[in-house]
């Protein structure tokens, strides 16, 4: 893993974004503050303002809908899976519209963190009843009254479903990051390297030719 290689990769030649070009582009430490900023480069095809705007409008709505699916799953079609898939759809949309930097910028946390927290949630829901001598996954129900919502029923299964939700989002994000964003970055990098190599070679060859042609007489006729 040598992500620390110095040769430049001005992948995104945004003026005034020095951290952009110095940091490793595929790192999850990418800046998070921008939101469909000017350095957008879509995953497919040329940049489309319409798509960007639509995305901007849609993403929060999609995320909200996914939470709804998660919460209502116990009584209606939906649940953790569907919710998670919908939520990740939002991120995929962002990636498609804004390219990999958009994807990285908009993440609440690294996919691995989501996966780990999701797993822990699942395990804890499963394992907590053991501590009080109950079987695994024994469900617990809390009912209480909240000022605004009235009677609220909270099931331990909801925690579990939240775990599922997080894991699904984590999966899709890491797959998109790997198969989409990272590969893109790599190809770009490889192209740059190729170019650099070619130019370096060209320069060396030119230098060699210059050196060879320096002693003028009869050099051109020697077989090389």
């Amino acid at each position: 893993m040598s992500t620390d290689r110095p040769e430049g990769r001005p992948l995104v030649a945004g003026p005034g974004t020095p951290d952009e070009s110095s940091g490793p582009p595929e790192s999850w430490e990418a800046p998070r503050e921008r939101w469909l900023s000017t350095v957008v480069r879509p995953a497919f095809g040329p940049r489309s303002v319409l798509l960007e705007v639509v995305t901007r409008l849609l993403v929060p709505a999609i995320l909200l809908f996914s939470v709804f699916l998660l919460v209502s799953g116990h009584n209606r079609p939906g649940g953790g899976f569907a919710g998670g898939l919908v939520a990740s759809m939002a991120y995929v949309l962002r990636y498609v519209a804004g390219g990999r930097h958009e994807l990285l910028a908009g993440l609440p946390m690294r996919p691995n963190g989501l996966l780990a927290i999701g797993t822990l949630l699942g395990c804890v829901t499963a394992g907590l009843p053991l501590l009080v001598g109950r079987p695994v996954f024994d469900s617990v129900k809390w009912e209480f009254t909240l000022p605004l919502f009235g009677e609220v029923k909270l099931l331990s299964a909801l925690f579990f479903e939240t775990g599922v939700y997080l894991i699904v989002v984590g999966l899709v994000l890491s797959v998109v990051a790997a198969l989409g964003a990272r590969m893109e970055a790599e190809e770009e990098e490889a192209r740059i390297e190729e170019r650099e190599r070619a130019s370096l070679l060209r320069r060396r060859r030119a230098a060699a030719r210059a050196a060879a042609s320096a002693p003028p007489p009869a050099a051109g006729e020697e077989p090389s």
Binding site: N112, A116, T119, L120, G122, A126, G127, R134
Partner: peptide, 24 residues
């Protein structure tokens, strides 16, 4: 007995999650 049967599943899974978090 409940716990004994669940430990071989849940403990490694928790371990997996923790090691995933502690990847650095």
């Amino acid at each position: 007995m409940n716990a004994l049967l669940a430990v071989p599943l849940l403990v490694p899974l928790c371990g997996a999650a923790v090691t995933l978090l502690l990847r650095r």
